[in-house]
Design a protein around this nucleic acid. Structure first.
Length: 223
DNA sequence: ACATTGTGAATCACCTACTT
DNA sequence: AAGTAGGTGATTCACAATGT
């Protein structure tokens, strides 16, 4: 079953390698200016919380790199399912042998994955995939949440639904900028009105103004 | 005691397929 | 072609369990 997949994805892999090579030559500092022998350690913390898998793998910032990442995702996901891994179980309860088997095949499919120490990138991708899969099943009632984690349902009630801290910070920042700009425009207009009264399409719409400068000066959005 | 890790839930963003 | 709905991946949150 897995071997069939191996053959099926062989041509995909070739295309991927070509894309990867090209991506690396364009921006070597992102993927590491190295060979396949590089051993990239896993970032501290949890994937998705303290670091992004895609960023840590250096597969962002270019369309091609993003495509490479998407292809790897697809492959790893297919392998995980074909291998018969029990996605319903918590990660820690899945037999290490099964994990190792999938890591191995994934690396054969995409040698790029060998760079990541102890296959951590492959591991995190599978974990995230299973987590989302479980989540959907829990949500739809197709799967029971282990009693061990029943407290997390209570957590969700405390969970702020008004968005992430980053998002909140951004909203505050945008509001500040908006206020500043409105004040600035007010002063400017006061000056220009005395000169002439033309000047309709001047970006007096605050939203327009926000779009114009939304990325230039976001220095202090810390929390 | 403190820090880190693992986990489910909630949410957002993006993509794809379908409908009009 | 444009709009909509559903699926999927990524991120954030809060807490318990575990490690140091």
């Amino acid at each position: 079953m897995v071997t069939e997949l191996l053959e099926k994805e062989c041509d995909v892999n070739q295309a991927l390698q070509a894309a990867l090579d090209e991506a690396e030559t364009t921006a070597p500092q992102c993927t590491g200016q190295d060979t396949e022998e590089e051993d990239i350690p896993q970032p501290a913390g949890t994937a998705g919380t303290t670091f992004s898998i895609q960023v840590a793998m250096g597969l962002v910032s270019m369309v091609k790199k993003h495509q490479v990442y998407q292809t790897i995702l697809r492959t790893v996901k297919d392998l995980a399912m074909c291998s018969g891994m029990s996605w319903e179980l918590p990660w820690s309860q899945i037999p290490a042998a099964e994990k190792a088997k999938v890591f191995q095949i994934a690396c054969e499919q995409h040698p790029f994955l060998k760079r990541f120490h102890n296959y951590w990138a492959t591991k995190e991708i599978i974990k995230q995939y299973f987590k989302n899969k479980q989540g959907h099943h829990y949500q739809n009632g197709w799967l029971d949440v282990p009693k061990k984690y029943s407290h997390l349902a209570n957590n969700s009630h405390k969970h702020s639904t008004s968005g992430s801290r980053v998002k909140k910070a951004k909203v505050i920042l945008v509001a500040k900028k908006h206020k500043k700009r409105v004040e600035k425009l007010g002063r400017k207009r006061a000056n220009t009105i005395s000169d002439s009264q033309g000047d309709e399409g001047d970006g007096s719409n605050p939203e327009e103004a926000m779009i114009v400068d939304h990325d230039k000066e976001d220095g202090g959005d810390d929390d």
